[in-house]
Write a protein that binds this DNA or RNA. Structure first.
Length: 617
RNA sequence: GGGCCGAUAGCUCAGUCGGUAGAGCAACUGGCUUUUAACCAGUGGGUCGCAGGUUCGAGUCCUGCUCGGCUCACCA
């Protein structure tokens, strides 16, 4: 009998033959349970490989690299260890090293490894039939393959080389690995296999003999992720926040600028959307009296897939009544510091970025991200101005300072013109460089900048830019010029109001929203603001959004009448924030792809072999 | 969707100018009763991603396709 979808080769064939021989020997080859001993301190009272190693590793005699412990040290350790009997289950972490009438092999529980020693004359096999009984243990051992699960019972000892081991006296077969295990030195390198078959990735990571100290194993990445989420909940719970769950399937997709997934409810016969953000539901709860409320769960956006985007991603949103955007930034800063410290053990986190040099080779640059110092706070216009020189340093150039003075960035007309200028001169310089590769980019830039700027100004003048266009141009300039440089934790404040339809205006400047985005590692990682609670103004902002949508902006928001009704009952002043958890984990795990921190990232479905015959027609 | 790169044994990878498909690990057989990436001797394993083309001859050259990676556009 064969399993569907499994490729057959000499290795699977051998494993299958071993399985049939085991069936003859022990009966049931997939027994229902294995009772473990309880000599170590574990939450569930069952010894694991990790708990045994943690409890008894200390008995290994300490010797210098490459040397063997002296006889007295071994004798002392074994005097203590031989009294301890354990019963523990695990996966064979390597092919057994058989030496005639005895063998060594390591067992793994996914985290740790523990060596077992099996001697022909000492080992008894256990039958898995209902009536139990004993079988030939050495024969049973001979039928095991790399990756099989077994249970062992025996006493602890240290070998001549000083390694903690179990001297096995009883051996029980627990489950078969029909597929061969990954290479013990290299693991799995193909990212496609690692992501599609995360189980294989996890196994390979736990069985790999050598590890790169700069690189977390998959198991460690996802444990880190779990720790981050636990600490966020603890941090908020401790401060009186209530965790809630609001609808994932909603009649309107709103609360953010994004395209939604659409589905259908049969009984109600209505279309529903997978939520793009829980924001408006959470603020309804603030109206209803939850002064501190949070939700930590998935959002869905029907957009492109990339190293920074997965169609479903995990977001934390929380709201605090009676607070404004500044208090929210303070709280977020405190939370980040706490989460980073708990998850990584330090407030200094190494993070690598990758850039391309002139020969198109990937160059790694290592940063130390400092969560301990106060986070930088920069106005959006300041950020554009600050990083303007670094943007153009890609092709080194003496910039004409007066052309790009910062006050221009608050002039809506010139902001639009500046965006045009950047786009045009980028492509003009590229054009010239393609035709004449020996040209000096800085000289090309200087020769073109005045005429390009004049063209941009006159074209902008003829199009009569709106407030929205100006706001979008500023954001564009910010994203292209400043964002990649925001490696250290930074709050960008003073967003243009037209791109912030749910946030309150600043009391000092009505064209500016009291909103921030939080950047770290060059990635946007959180977004918060003083929540707009005036129902009449919110109604007007929705109407502006609807107009934009009618002009073809698929990501503009829709009118949410019930939300206006909710605000009309009165919402206290409040600040809110959304935090991208996947990106936070990417940063702490030092991973440049979101797919490395999501267990099962979305990918195009695998095609079956037989379909290939029709491919290409 | 555009551009660049990749796909060869179960895994990690070589494969020169177009001339019989290779290595290490893994597997199989035999030996070895405290090994450490165990060792020693031997054996088997391939639709070179898929389809077509050029050629006396294609893993290698050309075209199309599939899947993946990076990148640009869109976004968080």
């Amino acid at each position: 009998m064969t399993v569907p979808f499994m490729e057959e080769n000499d290795q699977t064939q051998a494993r299958r033959e071993h399985l049939e021989a085991l069936r003859t020997l022990v009966g049931n080859v997939y027994p229902n349970k294995f009772e473990r001993s309880n000599v170590t301190d574990t939450p569930a009272g069952e010894d694991t490989i990790t708990s045994i190693v943690a409890a008894f590793k200390q008995y290994e005699p300490k010797v210098a690299e490459g040397e063997r412990p002296v006889a007295e040290a071994l004798e002392f350790a074994n005097g203590e260890l031989n009294k301890i009997r354990v019963r523990v289950g695990g996966r064979l972490a390597a092919p057994p090293r058989v030496m005639g009438k005895a063998a060594f092999v390591h067992l793994s529980d996914g985290v740790s490894r523990l060596q077992i020693y099996v001697r022909r004359q000492d080992v008894v096999g256990l039958s898995n039939d209902a009536e139990g009984g004993e079988v030939n243990g050495w024969e049973l051992f001979g039928l095991l393959d790399h990756g099989d699960f077994i249970g062992v019972e025996g006493y602890l000892f240290v070998t001549k080389t000083g390694e903690l081991s179990v001297h096995v006296e009883k051996l029980q077969f627990l489950a078969k690995a029909l597929l061969p295990m990954p290479d013990k030195m290299h693991g799995i390198n193909d990212p496609e296999i690692r992501q599609r078959q995360r189980y294989a990735d996890l196994i390979a990571g736990s069985l790999k003999l050598e590890r790169d100290e700069n690189d977390l194993t998959p198991r460690e990445v996802f444990t880190l992720r779990s720790n981050v989420i636990r600490e966020i909940r603890r941090f908020l719970d401790e401060r009186g926040y209530v965790e809630v769950e609001t609808p994932m399937l909603t009649p309107l997709a709103t609360g953010a600028a994004a395209r939604p997934f659409k589905t259908h409810h049969n009984t109600l016969d209505i279309d529903l959307f997978a939520r793009i953000a829980p924001e408006l539901y959470l603020k309804r709860l603030v109206v209803g009296g939850f002064e501190k409320v949070y939700e930590l769960n998935r959002n869905f956006r029907n957009e492109g897939i990339s190293t920074k985007h997965n169609p479903e991603f995990t977001m934390l949103e929380f709201y605090m009544a009676y607070a404004d955007v500044n208090q929210m930034m303070d709280l977020h800063e405190e939370m980040m510091r706490s989460v980073v410290k708990v998850a990584t053990g330090s407030t200094l986190v190494p993070y690598d970025t990758f850039d391309w040099d002139s020969e198109m080779q990937s160059v790694r640059e290592r940063h130390q991200i400092d969560f301990g110092s106060p986070f930088q706070r920069l106005k959006m216009t300041e950020a554009v101005f600050n990083y303007w020189d670094q943007y153009w340093s890609k092709r080194p150039s003496e910039l004409n300072g007066e052309l790009f003075e910062v006050p221009w960035l608050s002039d809506p007309f010139k902001v639009v013109a500046l965006q045009k200028f950047v786009i045009d001169i980028d492509s003009s310089v590229d054009q010239v460089m393609r035709d004449d590769q020996s040209a000096d980019p800085a000289e090309v830039f200087d020769s073109l900048k005045d005429s390009t700027w004049q063209t941009a100004l006159s074209q902008t003048f003829s199009t009569q830019p709106t407030a929205i266009a100006s706001a979008e141009s500023l954001v564009w300039l910010f994203e292209h010029i400043a964002e990649p440089h925001l490696i250290q934790p930074t709050f960008i404040i003073d967003f243009p109001k037209p791109v912030s339809p749910l946030s309150k205006a600043s009391p000092s400047d009505p064209s500016v929203a009291e909103r921030f985005e939080y950047f770290v590692g060059g990635l946007e990682s959180a977004n918060g603001f003083s929540e707009l609670n005036d129902p009449e103004e919110q109604y007007q902002r929705f109407k502006d959004q609807v107009q934009q949508r009618e002009r073809g902006d698929e990501e503009a928001m829709v009118m949410d009448e019930d939300y206006i009704r909710a605000l009309s009952y009165g919402m206290p002043p409040a600040a809110g924030i959304g935090v991208g958890i996947d990106r936070l984990v990417m940063l702490l795990a030092n991973k440049s792809s979101i797919r490395d921190v999501i267990l099962f990232p979305h990918m195009r479905p695998e095609r079956k072999k037989e379909d290939d015959e029709t491919a290409g027609h």
